[in-house]
Design a protein around this nucleic acid. Structure first.
Length: 578
RNA sequence: GCGCCCAUAGCUCAGAGGAUUAGAGCAGCCGCCUUCUAAGCGGCAGGUCGUUGGUUCGAGUCCAACUGGGCGCGCCA
């Protein structure tokens, strides 16, 4: 259970019992910043005193005795401008420990989402080549966020938008055709401007040659473009699917832009906007200060996104009359809404930052404000190897492929490291550092804590029967023998897991999970080391079976919470490290 | 020029509008292995939370302006 939500309800009930009909939704119940102030801190008095016609401290004093009588509360104190701080007895923490053992890695699961439908769209890399490291960051952030929302009781759909229409896939088809001719013995020379240079396309061209033989040689583009394009997209998606599989990511939906276009979804969406008077033909002001060389004023078909907070209205048609990418994205987001999603989340690269406002504007317009779109922008990943920057150039086609990174450091390392920074901070990824086995490496540090916990349990198995070490047996053990202040402190910390999960889910910030796990690992390593200094504080104490069982309960709970967190991140907990 | 993101210890970064004392890690200094993994732990030292205003009982957190950095800026996706 989220103990802070629990006490929020308790406190709200006591306020009601005092005869006040006040809105307690603004009241926060949190851990105090300074643990010396207690276990639970409520700002009720400051938020509610005005409504009750009282001074905050007077209100707090009136409420205090009632809270002091709540179960497991040993003290209620009024502090500062009117905080009410509660201290809880050890029994409460033993109950939390037993709870963790009872539910195992499902600890932290919550119904906060109330089954709300959420669509998390991430990766959505163009089907023009394998995934690179930047895609990897978005992939991990999106996937962990989806897992987090699932854990908090949302109905989550993981979705990948395939940009299989438009100029890029035409360029892909031409690039593959070139490699196809090459595979059949032609000399193609320099790859022309605008085509893809990636060496992976050599294989694709060869595969096409193998499948179709000389069928397309010497034919006009109008004949081969469509079939080659279809073939190439499928090949690229196979590559991408392979990359995702290596990362352990599985999508529920691959949404095809081409299918949407074919079904006339763009026309429908634009017609809807037109009905609302949000489409017009006009001429935009040139961007100030940075004028494109070939700029000339011309009338365009525009979406009035300024009506919803955007800076300028946005074109939905190109000069040749075809739809812009934005127009397709309008249709796509409306489609998501019509499929029943009230909450939309897009995970994009930071270079798409300029599109956030217009997309949110569209979602507002098409759903009459009933759907919310949150866009998580992921900053760059700076690759280095032992401190030496790894330079990438898309132009030269030598960008570092995600699969190579996974092959070198492993899926678990990639996933964890991608969450060691907020999504909107640039991330340094050093090949040498992330596989280092030291406390400087957060992945290792957390894995080591889990492995240590498992190691203790294995050792304990030599002294106890298997039936004595099951989580249930441990939960029913003499937990009250846990008396060391650091042991209780660790239980407290573990008991914050549900709140951490709910907070991270609500704020759409999966990195918080990685940070929390590092804290738990640190607490556990510290406790472990107290056993080095004082043998009486070791987890397994010769001749003290009851005390040992109580401590094993704590050790098992640590393992469960770390496993619970790693599951959100998509990392396999290590049983041992070699 | 405009928009978005960012600015917290020497470095890399956390920080849900709250309390006399803003936290980690690294680097620095001093310590801890006869041991369940020392692949670890403890301690010391280190801060005008970019600047200036504003809102509030209260601001690292919210608002505005400014300074500095990243990303982007009509018919690419």
């Amino acid at each position: 259970m989220n103990l802070f939500a629990y006490f929020h309800d308790k406190i709200a009930a006591e306020i009601a019992a005092l005869g006040f009909a006040l809105d307690t939704s603004r009241m926060s119940v949190e851990p105090p910043r300074d643990p010396a102030h207690g276990d639970v801190s409520a700002n009720a008095a400051m938020v509610l005193a005005k409504g009750a016609g009282m001074k905050p401290r007077d209100f707090a004093e009136k409420l205090r005795p009632r809270l002091a009588k709540l179960d497991h509360v040993t003290a209620a104190e009024v502090a500062g401008p009117g905080f009410i701080n509660l201290r809880l007895d050890n029994e409460f923490w033993y109950a939390r420990l037993a709870e963790i053992l009872r539910v195992g890695p499902a600890y932290g699961d919550s119904t906060a989402g109330q089954g709300r439908t959420v669509n998390v769209e991430y990766v959505s890399a163009n089907p023009t080549g394998p995934m690179h490291v930047g895609h990897g960051r978005g992939a991990v952030v999106g996937d962990a966020l989806a897992a987090l929302l699932h854990k908090t009781g949302h109905a989550v759909t993981r979705e990948y938008y395939v940009n299989d229409a438009g100029a890029q896939v035409d360029a892909l088809a031409r690039s593959v055709y070139l490699r196809y001719r090459q595979a059949l013995g032609e000399t193609v020379g320099e790859i022309p401007e605008g085509l893809y240079l990636g060496e992976y396309l050599i294989d694709t061209g060869a595969t096409l040659a193998q499948r179709d033989g000389k069928k397309w040689l010497g034919k006009p583009e109008s004949e081969w473009l469509a079939p080659v394009r279809e073939f190439a997209i499928e090949e690229m998606l196979t590559l991408i699917r392979g990359d995702l599989e290596r990362l352990g990511i599985e999508f529920d939906v691959f949404a095809s832009e081409r299918k949407l276009v074919k079904a006339g979804a763009i026309e429908h969406a634009i017609a809807e906007l037109e009905k609302q008077g949000l489409i017009y033909v006009g001429t935009l002001e040139p961007p100030k200060g940075m004028l494109p060389d070939d700029w000339e004023a011309r009338p365009q078909t525009l979406f009035r996104s300024t009506a919803f907070g955007d800076d300028v209205d946005r074109p939905i048609k190109k000069v040749d009359g075809s739809w812009t990418y934005f127009a397709a994205d309008i249709a796509y987001h409306w489609d998501k809404y019509k499929r029943g999603f009230a909450d939309l989340i897009d995970v994009w690269g930071a270079d798409h930052g300029g599109y956030v406002k217009r997309m949110q504007a569209v979602v507002k317009a098409l759903t009459q404000g009933k759907a919310a779109l949150d866009v998580k922008l992921c900053q760059l990943v700076n690759l280095s190897d032992g401190g030496q920057p790894v330079r990438m150039s898309k132009r030269a086609g030598n960008f570092v492929m995600l699969r190579d990174v996974i092959e070198r450091v492993g899926k678990d390392v990639v996933r964890f490291v991608m969450l060691t920074r907020r999504n909107d901070q640039t991330l340094d990824f050093d090949f040498a550092k992330v596989v280092e086995q030291s406390k400087d490496n957060p992945v290792f540090y957390v894995q080591y804590a889990h492995a240590r916990a498992r190691s203790v349990m294995r050792l304990a198995a030599q002294h106890f029967g298997a039936d004595e070490l099951t989580p249930t047996a441990l939960a029913h053990g003499p937990l009250n023998l846990l008396a060391d202040a650091d042991e209780i402190a660790l239980v407290r910390h573990l008991a914050q897991w549900p709140r951490t999960v709910e907070g991270a889910a609500q704020m759409h910030e999966p990195h918080r999970i990685a940070f929390y796990l590092q804290e738990i690992a640190a607490s556990f390593h510290a406790l472990w080391n107290k056993g080095n200094a004082d043998a009486g504080l070791r987890f397994v104490v010769e001749g003290k079976r009851d005390l040992t069982r109580a401590r094993l309960a704590l050790v098992q709970a640590v393992a469960f919470v770390i496993a619970s967190g790693l599951k959100v991140i998509g990392v396999t907990p290590a049983e041992e490290l070699r």
